[in-house]
Write a protein that binds this DNA or RNA. Structure first.
Lengths: 291, 291
DNA sequence: TATAATCAATCGATAAAACCGATTTAGGAA
DNA sequence: TTCCTAAATCGGTTTTATCGATTGATTATA
């Protein structure tokens, strides 16, 4: 039993005339006869009565038609659904973002959703490690994060922009007039940093180590909004990429001096996994929006 | 898109391993690869990600699988349904009966229903002409009636039994002691007959004509139960086949003398129309029951 | 009533395609 | 590295879907 045969049968049922049905199907009458016969052989029951040159449906034919129609419909529904998927009329995008890049995503998200309102989103915030783990387990389509120390062969990397590492401080402190600040100066300030799992912390700790500096880290915290809350009190300072506090009114970012004190924001996805049409479109819009 | 391909795809989806799926489907891995590829080409989207030697489902694959599964299911449901039909676990039998033969049908009906309780029945009582009309319009599978004057080529006839024409009279009348009665005697009695559309009436009127007799028909009526009601009063007599009043307690049948005074009960069906399994089984049981 | 037209079935031939085995390619394991 | 394994690819074979022509039978019509 094949969909082809079911379609032939349904057309023959509709027209109750093999010759016309064959014409409507763009096949020869001979072919139609044979395919119907084959279907009947498989079901071991005639679907049509052959009364002289006329045909009528048998009971079996009439009842079987219901199932045949549904089978054909489901298949064509599936085809239609895939087409919708390609036209961005359905589908889901799962994005992982490190907190530092949340503004980049939200801006693109708002724009994209107004153009393709039917596309669903799942946004996952987390550390780079967490997100990469999810990416490897096919739970995410793409992640937005800063460059990794070691690049992996099965990932596809797309650079977005660079952002300097910066001392983040309350707008109220006396530091805000400085154009830039050295790592040594930073190390003497009371610091509250993201937990060691965060890539920014990993990155900056390496820099301190290299310069043999001992920063005064009094707080480690794994939630950035809470961290920013603390910084706003003026009692602590922290170190983040400048992008992270782009839209924060009460905070100020002072770039840190040094050659390697900039980081590159990247898109990371799996090289060999088919990239959904919707994801492609979203990423294009996101990158376009950065220019 | 063919059911074959959908089945292949679903098996591959289930095992996530082309080699194993091919083995489970009793086809070569090469064939499976090709058929999946063909399906993907038609949908214009990959269903599987090929990550090294592993495969995983794409979003499209995962969503399409729902439709594929339903399409396959509907087709196999159809097949199963037809099998049930052949096993008499479903289906409908439409029988036309002339009133005279109702006991024959009801007896078989009760017996058959206890063996095949899932089979539906539609019983249509009517005159031979009415029933034959319905038979020709495929509204009935088979009819039970007495032999027709003219047999038609596109009908299939099966004889059941013969039954004498009889004068039917109330059990109270003085006639009940007679073993038989002549047509001439009958013609002198007050008669209530079925309407002229009934084959029994057509039949007996021809016999009267042949013998140049003028029967005293005071009532014609097209409903047999009402007719019998009238006969029970003893005021009238009627002429029916003996079978007609088989189970009537208050009535008595006296066979009419003469060579052609018996009628043959028959099954009539359409020659070139497929006879349902259920109908076959029912008619077998009916005929078996007459022995 | 003969004749023509029509329709489904059948036949033989052809083109299409499903399928297989062998080979290639490449990832993953030892 | 080398071996093992899984999917893709290639070339050839078998199967089958398809066609055109014909047959057989029914219906319409002249």
């Amino acid at each position: 039993m094949e969909l082809r045969q079911l379609k032939y049968f349904l057309k023959a049922k509709e027209l109750l005339n093999f010759t016309e049905a064959a014409a409507a199907l763009y096949i020869s009458q001979s072919t139609l006869s044979q395919q119907i016969k084959q279907l009947e052989d498989e079901l071991q029951v005639p679907l049509f009565n052959r009364i002289g040159k006329r045909i009528t449906l048998t009971e079996a034919g009439n009842l079987f038609a219901l199932y045949a129609q549904q089978s054909v419909n489901k298949a064509s529904d599936g085809l239609q659904f895939i087409k919708d998927l390609n036209n961005l009329e359905t589908g889901k995008i799962a994005i992982g973002v490190t907190y530092a890049l949340r503004h980049v995503v939200t801006k693109a998200l708002i724009l994209f959703s107004s153009e393709y309102p039917k596309i669903q989103f799942e946004i996952v915030f987390g550390t780079s490690q967490e997100l990469i783990h999810k990416l490897n387990h096919f739970e995410l389509d793409v992640i937005l994060t800063f460059e990794e120390i070691a690049s992996e062969a099965h990932f596809k990397y797309r650079e977005l922009f660079t952002s300097p590492m910066a001392l983040v401080t309350s707008s109220e402190t006396s530091l805000i007039h400085k154009k830039s600040i050295s790592l040594k100066e930073v190390s003497s300030l009371p610091l509250a940093l993201p937990s060691s799992g965060f890539s920014t912390t990993l990155f900056i700790n390496k820099a301190f180590e290299k310069d043999n500096l001992n920063p005064k880290v009094t707080i480690e915290i794994n939630d950035i909004p809470t961290l920013l809350e603390l910084i706003k009190t003026g009692k602590w300072h922290t170190i983040l990429t400048k992008t992270t506090i782009e839209n924060e009114k009460d905070l100020h970012a002072i770039p840190i001096k040094g050659q390697n004190m900039t980081r590159t924001a990247m898109l990371i996805s799996l090289k060999e996994v088919y990239e959904k049409k919707a994801v492609k479109a979203f990423l294009n819009m996101l990158m376009e929006n950065l220019k």
